[in-house]
Nucleic acid binder design. Structure first.
Lengths: 238, 238
DNA sequence: CGCCGTATTGAGCGCTCTCAACGAGGGTGG
DNA sequence: CCACCCTCGTTGAGAGCGCTCAATACGGCG
């Protein structure tokens, strides 16, 4: 039963999240070891900025523990969150490859632990390992799909539909390794969740309220838990 | 004066369109010739579908003449246009690289002429030419930026702001080689324009009306012409 | 206990969507 | 050549959604 639910979510959301992006734990052992040996280990306190849009990329990062928020700041000060990364995911490397500056900002949502691999080592591995560069190419393809689908969502779906979809996405992001149930504790503050789904905090709270009244979800403090996967899938229109 | 206006548009919109994507005319002569020699030439009548989402990629295309629309169909039947490609632009090749099926649909908006390069030749050129594969990588980076910015627009901006932005974008897309003025004839029907900016036809028409009343643009039949670039830049919030 | 940041609720306005009707223009057949 | 039809564009009206401002509640921390 659990497997069924998880499978259903994964099947439907495959095109939207980056779970199939580049992950440290999915690299071939040789490259994984090389990265882990060369990389530096950092602890980050909540709200620490790893890099800002406009800066020159310094290297590649891997999330060891915690959640990293990848976002963009608008001219009017509003923030748009693009991704929330969890354990194992690699990031910050794209613009090394094409010699551009960062387009996005990376911030620790919680107290985090990360690995950091200097640009030179990263480029060396790309150059030496055909396997790794193929994975990069594949990852880029998944990202493209995810971004295109995301555009579709924002252009065509209303807030209720978007919240349903993003809660399902976040249920996967917030899954912990030791978690038995399929239902995760989504612990994201209202401001960040609003920036993720592209609405105001008030609107978000009201929509959460409606979902609670319909028993699609429940909350505990600021944490959100999904009750009814089918209902959310249905609302999201997938 | 002309140069100033064009420059202003280009500077502000650089992150949003794919004019800096992969273009046939910007390839090194060797690769350009190779492609032109191996490719087949096709004429397409208006509304012809080159490929549908879900199909296996067959090769790479280049626009010789006309406009190609790259879009995605939603579950509820609505269409989201992602790009409108014009002369010189290359497309249809991404999912060759990562062995996936097409995520998007390509359709001729007008009577078009295209070059088509079989998958095998494309892969051969990628393999043989370091220069070409570097260009691919760079192009992918530009696309990523464009898509991320697009998400931001749809998540955060209202229809007036989006229309202003997309008209500026389309002014560049519809620029013809022999065009003297900076102002292009944007000849796109209302349905497609609505699918591009993500709204209903009625809403689009009303917003166009407001822009006309304010003398930001004028129309002739269904064609749209920009009068006031600064006003549109201002509205779009860039 | 009081403070501060965050979450929630209320109210009102403006934006956006939808349904419906009307108009304009091009193409076709009588 | 005209009448008709079909498609596309435009306009109107009303309901509902989403935004903003403002007030209130909650919870952790000094």
């Amino acid at each position: 039963m659990n497997a069924l639910i998880l499978n259903k979510i994964e099947t439907n959301l495959a095109g939207f999240n980056l779970n199939h992006g580049l992950r440290l734990d999915l690299l071939p052992p040789k490259e994984k070891n090389e990265i882990e040996e060369q990389a530096k280990y950092f602890k980050l306190s909540k709200k620490t900025v790893l890099y800002n849009e406009g800066e020159t990329p310094k290297g590649m990062y891997a999330v060891v523990k915690g959640k990293i928020k990848i976002s963009q700041l608008n001219a009017d000060g509003t923030e748009q969150i693009l991704f929330i990364l969890s354990e194992g995911e690699l990031f910050g490397y794209r613009n090394i490859l094409n010699n551009q500056r960062h387009v996005l900002t990376a911030t620790a949502l919680e107290n985090c632990e990360v690995l950091f691999l200097e640009k030179e080592y990263f480029l060396k591995i790309v150059k030496d390992s055909q396997h790794f560069s193929n994975l990069l190419l594949e990852s880029v393809g998944h990202e493209f799909t995810a971004l295109v689908n995301r555009i579709n969502i924002f252009a065509q779906k209303n807030i209720k539909e978007r919240l349903a979809l993003f809660l399902l996405l976040l249920n996967q992001v917030y899954k912990t390794p030791d978690q038995i149930s399929d239902i995760s504790e989504i612990k994201l503050n209202r401001g960040d969740l609003a920036s993720f789904i592209g609405t105001s905090i008030e609107n978000l709270v009201r929509t959460i309220k409606v979902f609670k009244e319909n028993n699609y979800i429940h909350t505990n403090g600021k944490s959100i838990y999904i009750n009814d996967v089918d209902a959310l899938l249905n609302i999201s229109g997938l």
